[in-house]
Amino acid sequence: MTSLMGYQPQNEGVGYSFSQPTSAPIKEHSFYPYTDNGGSTLGISGSDFAILAGDTRSVAGYNINSRYVPKVFRIGGDDETGEGAHILLAVVGFAADGQALKERLDAVVKMYRYQHGKPMSVSACAQRLSTILYQKRFFPYYVQAILAGLDEEGKGALYSYDPVGSYEREQCRAAGSAASLIMPFLDNQVNCKNQYIPGSGEGHALEPKMPEPLPRDTVEQLVRDAFTSAVERHIEVGDGLQMLLVTRNGIEEIYHPLKKD
């Protein structure tokens, strides 16, 4: 009967003609989902504090978007203002990813407190942040993150990350566009690289100076110096310096204007 009507029954499915797959040439995607918003961040830990700092300029190419877009955030605070937080996060790179990452980590730390009835330790938060970053291994959060807080012994703790979640605990770390300018300065001033004890010997016998935790005033001054120098040599760094300090008494915020040129 069907053959009389000239209809060829299809073997499977409903067989609408428009559901037939067609092969289209693979089109190249031209949309690029990242941008670089510039700026730099810096973290240094001390014996009973940790400091995270970042400039507040946001750029797009040669344009300055805004002179005040913070890069350092309080994580796991009680409200919008971040009051009651004990962990700091600095993110630099692609600002939208940085914002998303900050909000996710903030939610995680808050949920931890509601579920366990105690604040999340910095080491646990550090591991969790690594996991969050690695979960997006094949579409990464394009940011360099630095996490800071106080460890179980009350010592300053600082963790630095690459965009896909590799992390380590360090004494100090600079990230962002002026990292290559600031980091060598930190190597010398914080980790005492290329510093020797005067008169301790000649040539190879010269004794290297051992790094030790620096006092708070010294660290604050180092951060300011690092940024005022970076502003001179990097066009994406400037406008303002935001410093957040964790101590056992909570978090302090210090703002210093930088050159706006």
Binding site: M5, G6, Y7, Q8, S17, F18, S19, Q20, P21, T22, S23, A24, P25, I26, K27, H29, S30, F31
Partner: peptide
């Protein structure tokens, strides 16, 4: 189909990348 020939669905792309705004 016997009169008009099989329907040509080539303009209805169902496979290949979705036509997102590029």
């Amino acid at each position: 189909n016997d009169i008009y020939g099989p329907y040509n669905p080539s303009f209805l792309q169902t496979t290949g990348p979705k036509a997102h705004t590029q």
